[in-house]
C-alpha cells in the first residue's frame, strides 16, 4: 500500500464518516461536556484568583499569566474530547459494526484516515471555540485584578489558538488509542492514564528528571505551548507543539500499522 493511496481519502468515505459522527448522540454529549467543563472551570479558577489577588506579593502579581489562568479547564475538558476520539472507532469494534465498515471499505487505512479527518475538523472547530470562549470568560472574570488581557495584546492570539490546537491533538490521540485497544472502556482507561497518571509518576521522579521528562507530558507541553511566560527551563513553546503533534502522529501511525494486521 503506497503512501499516496493511504493519503488519497475519497470523498465518499468522508461523507460516510461524517454521517456516522453526526448521527449518534455521544458526539453531541462529549462536545457539550467538553465545552461546559472547560469554560466553567476557567470561570471558577479565575474567580478564585480575584478572591486572593490582593494578598499576592507584587512579584507574584507581576508573573501572573492571565491567559494561562483561563485555560485551567482544559485539564477537565480534554478528557471529553479525547473520549469522542476513542468512541468514533471503539464503538464500531464494541458493536461489531467495524466488520460491516471494513467489508464495505476493505482499504482499512483509508477508513482510519477518513475518521481522523472528520474528527480533526470537528475537534479543531470546537476546540478553538472552547479556547476562545474560555479566554473571554476568564478575562471577563479577572477584570477586578486589572491584569486581564485582550486578543490584541502581544502573544495572546497565538496562545489562545494553540489551546484550541491542543484539543485537536487529544482527539486524534484518542482515536489512535481507540483503534489500538478496540474496547471503549480499555481505551478510555489508557487515555486517562496517558493524560493524568503518567505525568503523576514522572513528576514524582527525582530532580532534574521530573521536569526533563515531565515537559514531554501532554499537559505540560500543552501548558508550555499556551503560556505567555513559558518556563525557560523547559521545552520551548514551539518544541512543545512539535511534541504534541508527535503524540498524535505516533498514536495514528501505530493504529494504521496494526489495523491491516489484525482480524476485524
Amino acid at each position: 500500500m503506497t503512501l499516496n493511496a493511504t493519503l488519497a481519502v475519497p470523498r465518499a468515505l468522508l461523507s460516510s464518516e461524517w454521517t456516522k459522527l453526526r448521527s449518534v448522540r455521544s458526539t453531541y454529549w462529549t462536545l457539550a461536556v467538553a465545552a461546559f467543563a472547560t469554560v466553567a472551570t476557567a470561570i471558577l479558577v479565575c474567580y478564585s484568583v480575584t478572591g486572593y489577588w490582593i494578598r499576592l506579593d507584587p512579584s507574584q502579581q507581576a508573573t501572573f499569566d492571565p491567559v494561562r489562568a483561563s485555560f485551567n479547564g482544559f485539564a477537565v475538558g480534554q478528557l471529553a474530547i479525547g473520549a469522542l476520539g476513542v468512541l468514533i472507532i471503539s464503538s464500531e469494534h464494541t458493536t461489531g459494526l467495524i466488520r460491516t465498515t471494513f467489508a464495505a471499505v476493505p482499504h482499512r487505512r483509508a477508513v482510519l484516515a477518513a475518521k481522523a479527518a472528520v474528527l480533526g475538523v470537528l475537534a479543531i472547530v470546537v476546540g478553538e471555540a472552547i479556547a476562545f470562549a474560555s479566554f473571554f470568560a476568564g478575562q471577563w472574570v479577572l477584570r477586578p485584578t486589572h491584569v486581564e488581557l485582550g486578543l490584541g495584546d502581544p502573544g495572546v492570539l497565538g496562545a489562545v489558538s494553540a489551546a484550541g490546537l491542543y484539543m485537536l491533538v487529544v482527539a486524534l490521540v484518542g482515536l489512535g488509542i481507540g483503534a489500538l485497544i478496540r474496547h471503549t472502556a480499555g481505551a478510555l482507561s489508557a487515555l486517562f492514564a496517558l493524560l493524568f497518571l503518567l505525568p503523576e509518576i514522572v513528576h514524582a521522579l527525582p530532580s532534574p528528571w521530573d521536569t526533563r521528562i515531565g515537559s514531554y507530558m501532554m499537559m505540560d507541553a500543552g501548558a508550555q505551548m499556551t503560556s505567555l511566560r513559558p518556563d525557560p527551563g523547559l521545552l520551548s513553546p514551539t518544541w512543545s507543539a512539535v511534541v504534541l503533534v508527535g503524540y498524535a502522529v505516533v498514536a495514528l501511525a501505530a493504529a494504521a500499522w496494526l489495523i491491516t494486521r489484525r482480524d476485524a
Binding site: 468515505l13 448521527s23 465498515t101
Partner: peptide, 26 residues
C-alpha cells in the same frame, strides 16, 4: 453480506445506519 444483525450502533437511526454505509460506496 449479512454476518451479524446485532452488529449495529443502537443510537443511530435505521436510515442513518444505511446512509453511512451507502455513502462509503458512493
Amino acid at each position: 453480506a449479512l454476518l451479524d444483525a446485532n452488529a449495529v450502533h443502537g443510537g443511530r437511526t435505521a436510515r442513518d445506519h444505511l446512509l453511512a454505509i451507502a455513502q462509503s460506496n458512493g
